[in-house]
Amino acid sequence: MKVLSYLLVFLFLASCSKKEKHPYSFYYWKTNLKFNNIEKEVLAKANAPYLYTRFFDVDKVNGKFEPVAVITQDKSFKTEKEIVPTVFITNRSFINIQKEEIPFLAKKINDLIKKKTADYNLKVNQEIQIDCDWTAGTKNDYFEFLKQLKKISQKEINCTLRLHQVKDKNVMGIPPVEKVYLMCYSTSSPLENSDKNSILDLNIMKSYLSKLEEYPVKKIEVALPIYSWGIITNHLGKHKLINALSAKDLDNPNFKKISDTEIEILKDGFYFGNFLNKGFKIKVEEISQEQLNSVIEFLDKKISSYNIIYYQLDSKFVEGRKF
């Protein structure tokens, strides 16, 4: 009986020490709503009931607000998940915005969300997410826009939160929402000459979020990166991004391996849809599961009971991953 008792105690302690997995889902950030079989399967296994779907972007062109890259839908886009309409707005849309333009912009955005929802018979929830890299100079107008959108839409309005907006909260202000989506990526610019991973550097992230537990909003959800890209560097040291490259794409007899993540081109030619010259270099940046685990371990000490939204749902990024 003693052995059995010890065994039960051990199992109990083990179960308590094992961290509870966070519910997770995905961002969907393509203009044409279209699933392949891999994406359908991965999404179906996600244990959070939502799919955060970008509907369109908003920019200011020649002084006028314009929707950009508005979604279209393919018949393959079917899911039991509730769609959370997500809209990206450029920060410059709020620079020198007039007071009367703020409710106008909120109404136009809400109208277009409603139109696309009806056009494609989408099952949306009672939330709209706004993505904007606001600054100290635009915060007041942006925050007023969020209030106006809530009033006009009669929905829960939430927004994304970037790392620098956490670190510099006294300057950047606190958005008037009950829930934010913390974007734990883009820790530096990929166009800088740096040996750091610009998608996610854990030390940089930790420095920005050292006082995350003090951020005064009711709820924080977490967006984590699973995307990758290649950074091309030419003879003049100028850079260009190629989306969705991974280390396995660097296996080519016309490439000289510099490291596990970097090559030099040995022969002029078309590579990844671009004509690249001999001597150009390509560096791949991607995120491992170990890196994601380290981020989650850090965040678990700062906030509790959060959902994870992976950016983004694309077979190039989700195939072979264990969520």
Rank of each mutant, 00 (worst) to 15 (best):
V42M: 04
L43D: 14
A44C: 06
A44S: 15
K45P: 10
K45F: 05
A46L: 13
N47G: 10
N47E: 03
A48M: 03
P49E: 15
Y50N: 14
Y50Q: 13
Y50M: 11
Y50S: 14
L51V: 01
Y52W: 10
T53A: 03
R54S: 08
R54L: 13
R54D: 06
F56H: 08
F56E: 11
F56K: 10
D57F: 12
D59F: 02
D59V: 06
D59H: 07
K60D: 07
K60P: 05
K60I: 01
N62C: 03
N62F: 07
F65M: 07
F65R: 00
E66Q: 14
P67Q: 10
P67W: 02
P67L: 12
A69I: 01
V70G: 09
I71W: 02
I71G: 09
T72N: 05
T72F: 00
D74M: 03
K75H: 10
K75I: 13
K75M: 05
S76I: 04
S76Q: 06
S76N: 03
S76W: 08
K78F: 02
K78G: 01
T79S: 11
E80Q: 12
K81G: 06
K81N: 03
E82H: 07
I83S: 01
I83F: 00
V84F: 00
V84L: 00
P85D: 02
P85N: 08
V87C: 04
V87P: 00
V87N: 04
